[in-house]
Design a binder for these strands. Structure first.
Length: 577
DNA sequence: GCCGTTTTCGGCCCGACTGTTTTCAGTCG
């Protein structure tokens, strides 16, 4: 039972309580607890062992702590079992539908409608429209929501939303009188996936702005259109909201619509303590506006530094901002190298020379070419003989492409038993060794953990590539005791990669936070297999920023000589005694 | 259900839009 599983139960409990019209603040307490557990960087199961640790978490008191202990130990807790009996309904699936909240679900429950199938049947039979709180329109919307829930998995990868978000923002920007357009929401917080897009605009006639917004060629359906807010759905299924706000409120609105929700709640609490009120229109004292034109203004008035959007997750950033101790987050321009690159020698599309030229032209001072090792037979992976040959190839490309240092690397498979897929002779020929999991990903947790621990203990290893091997939306992370892995990496001076492929983002922000806590250095790499993937670097930087990483946490921000010195130092430290 | 150098009780963030109402509840963010 991992943190997400426990959070899911608490979340479901909250919804079931809501259906039963329980005290809304009690409902909120369960939701808040779920959120806190889900964003924790250590396993709840380990907190349970020590008395009082759970109760120290924000929003978790004696009562919830006891329930969480139950869930960790037995997989459930009494109130959850009771609730499941009283609310025998597919809560999550039903409330996930647009326009379906606790009240309507309660109405369904009273009519014996318990799941999506029964709901769809009733809707198509026209039986829903007569229910209290429903109607013809709602009935139709429910049918559509069920159909679209079947089509979509729900969230969109940031990289997929990136071009369309900017295209729509640019279109609104062209409207006469519009002075500012910004994309807010989880997009601005650079989450790896987003649920919808929130765009803010300022200036211009409402009708003209909304017209430009709702007529973008990708629009499939206009869901709402008002003077200050419109909502639409794109052909891809992505929902986009646009809000038109007055200039004196733009900063407050940016703050509000960037979120996270929990971050905003904490800010409002601070405003209340000062006798003020904070909403999307501004920070006000009675009727007097205290701040609101810019975010900086609002943060300053609240007595803190401006907080980068990536950190606004209610993870302690507000305290840091009040104390003036926010980290100076890493930026794309800090990176001096891309250290995970494939070529057509294995499964990449481009020649070695083309890739190295492109890397140099991107302005990198150095790079590492890291094709696959032999166990990836479908990628024509390298054996020792091929690595020997590669030494010559790398020497040739260094000659052919001046202006960038090229490390001779390899992405070596971690075999099922934790051995490396290259012998000592081959490893000794390399400047840079990434080890990665590519096969046998279904191993049980114990086996997988032992496998990785063994690989990380090998003195030739520099970094672990895409450590959990997950693919967002298509493959779950491997079962791995990440704490044990990070402890091992710290012990042996191994690094962890933040793989910037937008479907990997691996390490993710939470794991990167855990790595930082242990003083582990990270590298951010694109794992490029073709030229355009070199531009993925920004997505890795986003994850690093969300984890609160600075330039100092990431080794490929170092100048080349300092980088080589750091590698040499690490190797002497981990040399067998 | 949580929380508290103002409180162990009485607070707990707030507004827009829609559809179903007949003045507003439900949902969403």
């Amino acid at each position: 039972m991992n943190n997400t599983d426990i959070a899911r139960i608490l979340h479901r409990l909250a919804t079931m309580l809501e259906i039963e019209a329980a005290n809304p603040f009690r409902v909120r307490a369960y939701r808040e607890a779920a959120r806190v557990l889900d964003s924790l960087t250590e396993p709840v199961a380990s907190l349970v062992e020590e008395a009082g640790r759970l109760e120290k978490l924000p929003g978790i008191g004696k009562d919830l702590a006891a329930k969480i202990r139950d869930i960790v130990r037995t997989g459930t807790t009494q109130v959850y079992e009771e609730m499941k009996a009283r609310v025998p309904i597919e809560v999550a699936a039903l409330t996930a539908l647009q326009n379906m909240g606790p009240k309507r679900v309660k109405t369904l429950l009273d009519r014996g409608i318990r799941n999506l199938e029964e709901l769809e049947q009733a809707a198509r039979a026209g039986q829903l429209a007569a229910l209290p709180g429903f109607g013809e329109v709602t009935q139709m919307k429910i049918i559509q929501a069920i159909e679209s829930a079947r089509r979509e998995s729900g969230r969109t990868r940031l990289s997929e939303a990136w071009p369309v978000a900017h295209a729509i923002a640019d279109r609104v920007r062209t409207v006469e009188g519009v002075t500012q357009v910004e994309i807010a929401g989880s997009f601005r917080r650079r989450k790896e996936t987003i649920g919808d897009l929130d765009i803010l605009a300022c200036g211009g006639a409402p009708d003209a702005v909304m017209e430009a917004f709702t007529t973008h060629y990708e629009v499939a359906e206009i869901k709402a259109r008002g003077a200050s807010k419109s909502s639409l759905q794109l052909a891809s299924g992505l929902q986009v909201d646009l809000r038109l706000v007055p200039p004196e409120s733009f900063g407050a609105a940016m703050l509000y619509f960037t979120g996270s929700k929990q971050h905003n709640i904490e800010l409002r609490r601070i405003a209340l303590d000062k006798g003020w009120s904070l909403n999307e229109y501004g920070l006000t004292e009675k009727d007097r506006q205290v701040a609101g034109r810019t975010e900086e203004e609002v943060f300053r008035a609240l007595g803190m530094e401006w907080i980068p959007p990536e950190l606004r997750e209610a993870q302690g950033e507000i305290r840091l901002a009040q104390e003036g101790r926010l980290p100076r987050l890493i930026e794309l321009g800090d990176l001096r190298a891309d250290l995970h690159i494939h070529t057509d020698r294995t499964d990449g599309r481009e020649s070695l020379e083309t890739m190295v030229r492109a890397l140099r032209d991107k302005g990198y001072a150095y790079c590492a070419i890291t094709d696959h090792s032999k166990s990836l037979t479908m990628a024509f992976g390298f054996d020792t003989e091929r690595v020997r040959q590669s030494v010559q190839e790398i020497a040739a490309v260094r000659e052919a492409v001046p202006g960038i240092e090229v490390l001779h690397g390899l992405e070596v498979d971690i075999l099922a038993d934790g051995a490396l897929d290259l012998d000592e002779e081959g490893l000794a020929l390399l400047d840079w060794v990434i080890v990665s999991l590519h096969s046998r990903l279904k191993q049980p947790r114990e086996e997988m953990t032992a496998r990785v621990l063994k690989a990380l203990a090998h003195p030739a290893v520099h970094v672990m590539g895409h450590p959990t091997a997950r693919m967002i939306g298509s493959r779950e992370p491997v079962e791995l005791d990440m704490e044990a892995v990070l402890d091992q990496a710290a012990r042996h001076g191994a690094m962890m990669e933040i793989n910037a492929q937008p479907h990997r983002i691996d390490l993710n922000d939470l794991n990167a936070r855990m790595a930082k806590e242990r003083g582990i250095k990270m590298v951010i790499d694109t794992d490029s297999h073709r030229l355009r993937e070199l531009d993925y670097m920004q997505y890795g930087v986003f994850a690093a920023r969300r984890a609160g990483l600075t330039k100092d946490d990431v080794l490929n921000t170092l100048p080349y000589d300092a980088f080589r010195a750091a590698l040499a130092e690490r190797r002497s430290r981990s040399a067998p005694s």
